[in-house]
Computed example of a mutant assay.
Amino acid sequence: MSNQDQAEAFALSCKTILLTFILLLVCLGLFACGGGTDNAGGGNTTAPTAITYSTNPAAYTKDIAITENCPTVSGGKATAFTVSPALPAGLSLDPSTGVITGTPITVVAQTSYVVTVKNATGSVSATLSLSIEKAVDLLEKLAIARESMAYGIDLVCILFRTIRLSAGKGMSKRGMKSTEQSAARTTGRSWMHDCSFLRSKTRK
């Protein structure tokens, strides 16, 4: 056999081996695609089994953008999300991902919303509780703090008045000198004056 014949035979052998290898890969690929039970033919044949949200129940504040509330879906891959009834004005649910975003613009008491996730095989629902409260502005916060301070001062004044009365009776019983009693009363009156002054300032 000539060198040319040997070269042609070697090339033919290489082609045969390469074609055999390619055919084997194709067969393996077809087997892998058609052998599954959940995704035969590349489709999604498993229905969603559960859906949960990262924040539930969720409490939001009017006119303040919320942090994305993201769902977690168990089971088959989700293809669509719906919610009923409609979310409060300013909030929206992405029909593809189920993520809730937005800035609420109305005050809403705690309400239950049914979120449904589905695919071609089936669907599952879960209840999401939402509430939207009014934003407390700075002046309102200061008013609340001021009222709390006034209440605390009232308690201190009542307590001090009680102690002062008890101390006055004790001084009389022990027969303290008039100068000592006078000094104690002066101190007591000074404390009462300060107490009244603080009460008047916090009540304005």
Results as ranks from 00 to 15, higher is better:
Met1Asp: 12
Ser2Gly: 11
Gln4Phe: 07
Asp5Leu: 10
Gln6Val: 15
Gln6Leu: 14
Glu8Gly: 04
Ala11Asn: 05
Ala11Val: 02
Leu12Asn: 12
Leu12Cys: 07
Thr16Gln: 03
Phe21Ile: 09
Ile22Gln: 05
Leu23Gln: 11
Leu24Thr: 15
Leu25Pro: 04
Cys27Tyr: 14
Leu28Ala: 12
Gly29Cys: 07
Phe31Leu: 09
Cys33Tyr: 14
Gly34Thr: 15
Gly35Met: 10
Ala40Glu: 05
Ile51Trp: 02
Ile51Cys: 01
Asn56Lys: 05
Ala65Tyr: 00
Thr67Cys: 02
Thr67Gly: 13
Asn69Lys: 04
Lys77Cys: 03
Ala78Asn: 08
Ala80Pro: 04
Ser84Lys: 12
Pro85Ser: 08
Ala86Gly: 08
Leu87Cys: 11
Pro88Val: 05
Ala89Glu: 14
Asp94Trp: 13
Thr97Asp: 10
Gly98Tyr: 13
Ile100Arg: 01
Thr101Leu: 13
Thr101Asn: 14
Pro104Thr: 05
Ala120Ser: 10
Ala120Pro: 00
Gly122Asn: 04
Val124Trp: 13
Thr127Ile: 14
Ser129Thr: 08
Ser129Ala: 11
Ser131Tyr: 08
Glu133Gln: 10
Asp137Gly: 02
Leu138Gln: 09
Leu142Gly: 02
Ile144Pro: 00
Ala145Cys: 05
Asp154Gly: 00
Asp154Val: 00
Val156His: 00
Thr162Ala: 05
Thr162Lys: 01
Arg164Tyr: 09
Ser166Gly: 07
Lys169Asp: 14
Lys173Cys: 03
Lys173Ile: 14
Gly175Thr: 03
Ser182Gln: 15
Ala183His: 10
Ala183Phe: 14
Ser190Glu: 13
Met192Leu: 10
